[in-house]
Design a protein around this nucleic acid. Sequence first.
RNA 1: GCCCCUGUAGCUCAGUUGGAUAGAGCAACGGACUUCUAAUCCGUUUGUCGCAGGUUCGAUUCCUGCCGGGGGCGCCA
Length: 603
Amino acid sequence: MSTPEVTGMTGTKPSSRVQVRQNRDFMADPLSLLARRLSPAFAAVAGGEVDPVVRPSEHADAQVNGALALAKKLGKQPREVVAQVLDIAGDMSDMCTDLQVAGPGFVNVVFAEKFLAEQVHVAMASEALGVAAAPVKRKYVVDYSAPNVAKEMHVGHLRSTIIGDALVRMLTFVGHIVVRENHIGDWGTPFGMLIEHLVDLGEADAAHELGVGDLDGFYKEARRKFEADDVFKERARARVVALQGGDPDTLRLWKTLVNESTKYFNHVYGLLDVLLTDDDLAGESKYNTLLPQVVDRLAKLGMLVESDGAEVVFPAGFTNREGDPLPLIIRKGDGGYNYATTDLACVIDRVENIGAEASLYVVGAPQAQHLQMIESVSRTAGWLSDDADMVHVAFGSVLGADRKMLKSRSGDAVKLASLLEEAVDRANRAITEKNPEMADDQRAQVAKMIGIGAVKYSDLSSDRVKDYVFDWDRMLSFEGNTAPYLQYAHARICSIFRRAGVERESVRHVVPTLDAPQERSLALRLLQFDAAVWDAIDKYSPHRLCTYLYDLASDFTSFYEHCPVLRAESDSMRNSRLFLCDSTARVMNAGLAVLGIRSPEMM
RNA sequence: GCCCCUGUAGCUCAGUUGGAUAGAGCAACGGACUUCUAAUCCGUUUGUCGCAGGUUCGAUUCCUGCCGGGGGCGCCA
């Protein structure tokens, strides 16, 4: 079977979600278990495989809607179909206490407490907390972050880096093999002026300037001289030629720029707490030697066309302003290559050298057409086979309070490093206010987790394709769908165990009792972690997991208010509740972890 | 001009591929702390789902056409 995919960039419809679910070995999700249980009965009535359409319900734990569509198909009354299905299904009392037919033919399902208790016990005994492993392990390449050498990282890189990191962690969590690729911009004509500026400053001073993170100052000064000074401009041009010609001294200077910049990137990645390392660097320069091969191979396939002095490919279905075919430029009129060629070389490298079965491009939404063209050419050329996925994980812009693109006071892009420092600083102030007793060194640690977590979560928690408004007060609030609220739930649980003097592990053998409605809701929620993770993966949409974790935190705090743990009426009730606490903390911790967010034990 | 994304409560956002009376948070109002961390909880109030058609038992969801916002459309990446 092929792994689920979002709509491919060529617009091919993905296999239906229902098939995906049936083929996947869900371990915990009660809705899936119910669907699987009812499936034979539906098949018997329908005379073939049919989706029972089990959905969450406001009126019960779940509702089964499959009879409505089936009734129409069979020309029967929905309620008659329901009766037949339930008759064939037989005794379901081990799973649900109540099966009520409602409205035109919905079946409301209330799960048996014993069933939920057993299920949550089993799910929480597993390393993955009930989350099913990928039935087929695939090799994914995830392309994200991609800052430019000698240029400041800004909010655009923030989204790509955060979303990419979360996807990498989610895919890894379910057992896929994930290759991270950070396509830093380390090649091209700007490097002529950058190297000459480096020479002017002296290598040591320039390295220092870049090393302390004044990348924008460096870049702007280089550009200013390039535009104002004809002699400098000529030097820059000559330097580009020397760079492309492989002049050793030029390459050494170039390498200095790259090294100092990557040091700085690593500093930012450290602040951001993401997985990227130097091993993941796949700069544009890496693909240089492959570029002539791209041209050759396209030429041999007869795809290459000469147009206005450039060598181009016309992928089918793309037109320009005038309605004429739109080219993908492979080699420019001056003989140079551009990023389309690099992207194609990259596709070849992934398929033929890395063995990638799926490529994710965590790139801003404006690149949609470019990536569609890359995919189209790659498929036509036969580099991407039909079962190889190429997905544009697109995202929108970060907006300021004025609903315009987020800018600093001076009108420049906001420096990512200073933004992250401000986040930690604000978190630190909040903790100081709310929990003054906390020791300084501990507060510093926790402030990082909360500040960075808040920035990440606010980025991840809404639909990535939409723009989102950056708002310090909202993201650092402890109310509503925010990282601190989720982290607080986790910290409170840790506090309970500290106070109880009980080891977390010691309650993991417990089968809970779920008498109180809050206990029951919490257990049911814990079982849905499985579905939530997979839902997020299926759509490459981390916000789906965020919504789940928020619901989990809400259910927990409600439980916390209504169900005393340490002062429980009996030891068995206390143990049962300790089990629910521990389970909640583990799911919260794991869920936040796959989003790239830490769970403090105290805050 | 063509193409892509987007439009849901005063604000910020969900809405599980077509299901029941569209949900959260913030804001507003009313309650609950000698606490297992009140950084919280409980309750009340909030809608022409941009507009108009169509498809059908049923549409925020699918189709068509408009309107508003953002973006893209040949040698920058």
